[in-house]
Design a protein around this nucleic acid. Structure first.
Lengths: 213, 213
DNA sequence: TTGCAAAACGGAGGGAACCTCCGGTATACT
DNA sequence: AGTATACCGGAGGTTCCCTCCGTTTTGCAA
C-alpha cells in the first residue's frame, strides 16, 4: 500500500498530465445518473422489497441497464449504496432541524424520522442483514454516523437545558431501534407512540432537576 | 371438519368404489420420491443456502424437475416441508435416546442435537423466517412438537431424579435457542459449550435438593 | 393373473431476470 | 477547438423458474 502511494505521487510529480487519470472530476452526467439510480432504487426497494428487478430500477431512473451495472457492479453494491445514501439524508436532516427549531423539538422530530426510516428499510432488510454482518466496517460506519447525529441533537438539547444529560447517542439509537424492531410489521403508529413516550422521558430530568454535574 | 369426516364415511358405505379416489394408498414411488426429494433438499439447503436451484435438488434426488414441482408446487412449500421433516427427525430422536440411555444423558445429547439442528438451518433461515412469520399455524405446530419432545425428556429426567423439576420444555427451548442465536456464525463449539453449561444447571437442583413439590 | 384407469414420471420449452460486452456519444482537459 | 477519456445504453448469452403433456408405473378389481 505504502509503495503504491509513493509511486502514484512520483508519477504525478514527474508527469503532471498523469494526474488527469487519477483525480479528474467525474463527469456531470455520471454524477446525475448515479443520483437518479440511488433515489429510484430507494423508492423501489421500499415499495416492492429487496428483489425488485434491477431492470425496473434502471428504467425508473431513466437510464440503461448497463449504466446501472457500471455504477453498482452487484446487487449488494446497490443495496449498500442506497443504505449509505439514506443514512446520509437522515443525518443531514438532523442539522437542518437544529437550524429550524429548538433542540428538543428537533430531537423529537428526528426520532420520528428515524422510526419512518427504519420502517421503509423493512423491505430491504433481508438483503441488508447479510451485508451488515459480513462487512463490519460498513456496519460500523453507518452506525457511527447515526450515533454522531443523535449525539449532536442530544448535546444541543442539553446545552439548552431541555434534555437530560445522562443519555448518549448510542443509548438513544439502541432504544429507538429496539422499539422499531419489537413492534412487528406495519404498525408504525405504535412505534411512533412509544418513541414519543421515550422522548418525554428524555425531557423529564432536564436542566435544574439534575442536582449534580 | 367433523362434517367432512361424516361425508367420507357415508360415501364409503353407500358406494364402496368411491373410496378408491378418497383414500387410495399413495403410490410407492410417490412416497419414495417425496422422501428422496426431502433429504436431497435438506442437504442442498444446508450446504449451499436457501437459493440453490431447484433443478439441482431434483437431479440430486434422481427425479425430474416435474416431479419436484408436483410434490412441492412452490419453493416455499419445499422449504416448509423440509423444515417439518427435520423437526420430525429431531423429535423422533428424543424417543430413541430415551430408550438407549438414562434420561439425563438423553437430554444432554438431545440438546446438542438441537444445537446442530439450528446450525444447519442457518442457511435456509432467510427463506424460513418469512414463512414462520406469515404462517402462524405452521410456526405453532413445529414449536409445539419441539416443546413436547423437550418436555418428555425433562419429565423423564425428573422422574428419575436426575433433573430439576422447575423448568419446562418451553423454557428449555427458549434458553437453547437464545444461545444458538446469540453465538453468531460458524462457532458451534461455543454454542455447544454454553449448552453444556446450561445442562449442568438443569442437573444441579435435582431430586432431593428440591424440598417441596 | 390380467386389465384398466388413475396417478406419477420426467423433460422440453417459453418466459423472466441477470449480467456482459462493445459501438456510439458526451465531456473534461489542453 | 481538438481529443482522449470516460460514460451511455441496449442487444444478447446464460441461468433459473415453472408449465405442460406424452409416457410409464402401479394399485385395485374381476
Amino acid at each position: 500500500m505504502v509503495a503504491r502511494d509513493v509511486e502514484a505521487v512520483e508519477a504525478r510529480v514527474s508527469a503532471p498530465e498523469d494526474s488527469v487519470s487519477t483525480d479528474r472530476r467525474p463527469r456531470a452526467d455520471a454524477v446525475r445518473n448515479r443520483d437518479l439510480l440511488l433515489s429510484a432504487a430507494a423508492a423501489a426497494f421500499a415499495a416492492r422489497g429487496a428483489d425488485v428487478p434491477l431492470e425496473d430500477i434502471a428504467r425508473a431512473a431513466g437510464v440503461g441497464i448497463g449504466t446501472l451495472y457500471r455504477h453498482f457492479p452487484t446487487r449488494d453494491a446497490l443495496v449498500e449504496a442506497v443504505y449509505r445514501y439514506e443514512v446520509d439524508v437522515l443525518c443531514e436532516r438532523a442539522d437542518q432541524l437544529l437550524e429550524e427549531m429548538p433542540p428538543d423539538l428537533a430531537l423529537a422530530e428526528w426520532m420520528q424520522l428515524f422510526v419512518r426510516h427504519v420502517a421503509t428499510k423493512k423491505g430491504m432488510l433481508s438483503a441488508l442483514k447479510p451485508l451488515l454482518s459480513s462487512n463490519p466496517s460498513f456496519s460500523d460506519q453507518t452506525k457511527g454516523r447515526a450515533q454522531a447525529a443523535a449525539t449532536k441533537l442530544l448535546n444541543a438539547g442539553v446545552a439548552a437545558g431541555t434534555v437530560r444529560a445522562d443519555v448518549d447517542g448510542a443509548d438513544l439509537l439502541r432504544a429507538v431501534g429496539g422499539i422499531c424492531m419489537s413492534t412487528d410489521q406495519e404498525r408504525s403508529e405504535a412505534s411512533e407512540r412509544l418513541v414519543g413516550l421515550l422522548f418525554d422521558g428524555l425531557r423529564h430530568g432536564a436542566a435544574g432537576s439534575q442536582v449534580s454535574g
